[in-house]
């Protein structure tokens, strides 16, 4: 047999079997196969939206069965919270940022499939449309207020955050500052009792190398008791910045939308586009 003919025969037989395996796939023995989903692609030209406004988007989709049971924008909502409490007495600052899911991924708006949406250039159906954002998702911010309003502060700042600030700033204050806050300004403890929480130690004078000076430090065994009393110092006394004439508070709550375009094809198989994140102003 001519060798060229043999090669040709081999290719024909091999191809025939491979084509047959497109339908009856030996891969099935190795993996589990589901029905085919539509292909979905989405773009959102902006990263921000004002609460109550709509967001423009562009979506492209296609499916081998060329049938579409549902087209919709879905999004979940995250809350981003940021707290900063700054001491007015020194540079201490307590900062906490957190993100938590506020609403699960859910359908927001559905769209009608139209054959006229087909783009021969893209070889896909195209939708250019908008989806809504509730005006209730407007962000909130409080930054260095010049007036202290306890009801607002307690409403915005969790007790645990304020507690962490007390714990942190306490570690940074020296004898004189604690004396001003607890004895002189707020009469939380009398002078004699206050002294019992401290001991005098000698440390090297930072301004004169080799020289030692006396400093008063909190006794280890007294620390938790003094901290307990320290928490009676009014919060506003700790955060008022006298030179800048404001209270060192920053609170911000913003919402972020995690947006996907969902397509359900004729097999009732769903598929989502990749997720885009939009910040609500």
């Amino acid at each position: 047999m001519n060798s060229k003919l043999k090669y040709l025969l081999g290719v024909i037989i091999g191809s025939a079997f491979l084509v047959s395996c497109e339908i009856n796939d030996p891969v099935t023995d190795l993996v589990r196969t589901g029905k085919l989903a539509a292909n979905v692609y989405m773009e959102i030209p902006t990263g921000n939206v004002t609460a109550g406004d709509s967001v423009d988007f562009h979506a492209e989709y296609w499916s081998v069965d060329n049938k579409f049971n549902s087209l919709a924008i879905w999004y979940s909502i995250n809350t981003n919270l940021s707290y900063t409490i700054s001491s007015g007495l020194n540079d201490y600052m307590y900062k906490l940022d957190s993100t938590e899911l506020a609403r699960e991924l859910q359908e927001i708006e559905d769209y009608e499939h139209k054959d006229s949406n087909y783009s021969t250039e893209k070889k896909a159906y195209i939708i250019d449309d908008k989806f809504p954002v509730s005006y209730t998702l407007a962000g909130t911010e409080l930054k260095n207020p010049i007036v202290y309003d306890e009801s607002i502060v307690l409403q915005l700042f969790p007790a645990s955050v304020i507690e962490q600030f007390y714990n942190g700033v306490f570690e940074t204050l020296n004898y004189d500052q604690l004396n001003d806050l607890m004895v002189i300004n707020n009469n939380i403890v009398d002078s004699a009792a206050f002294e019992t929480y401290f001991e005098t130690i000698q440390v090297e004078d930072p301004d004169n190398e080799g020289e030692f000076i006396d400093v008063k430090v909190i006794k280890d065994e007294s620390k938790s008791d003094l901290l307990k009393l320290f928490k009676e110092v009014p919060f506003e006394d700790l955060i008022y910045n006298a030179s800048k004439q404001y209270y060192g508070l920053f609170y911000q709550r913003i919402y972020k939308l995690n947006v996907k375009f969902r397509v359900v094809n004729g097999n009732d198989v769903e598929n989502f586009s990749t997720e885009k994140t939009i910040t609500v102003n």
């Binding site: 047959s20 395996c21 099935t28 023995d29 589990r32 196969t33 589901g34």
Partner: peptide, 13 residues
């Protein structure tokens, strides 16, 4: 190929 294609593909839900 014959044995490979012996079983039909299972499309699962």
């Amino acid at each position: 190929s014959y044995y490979g294609c012996e079983k039909d593909l299972n499309i699962e839900e």
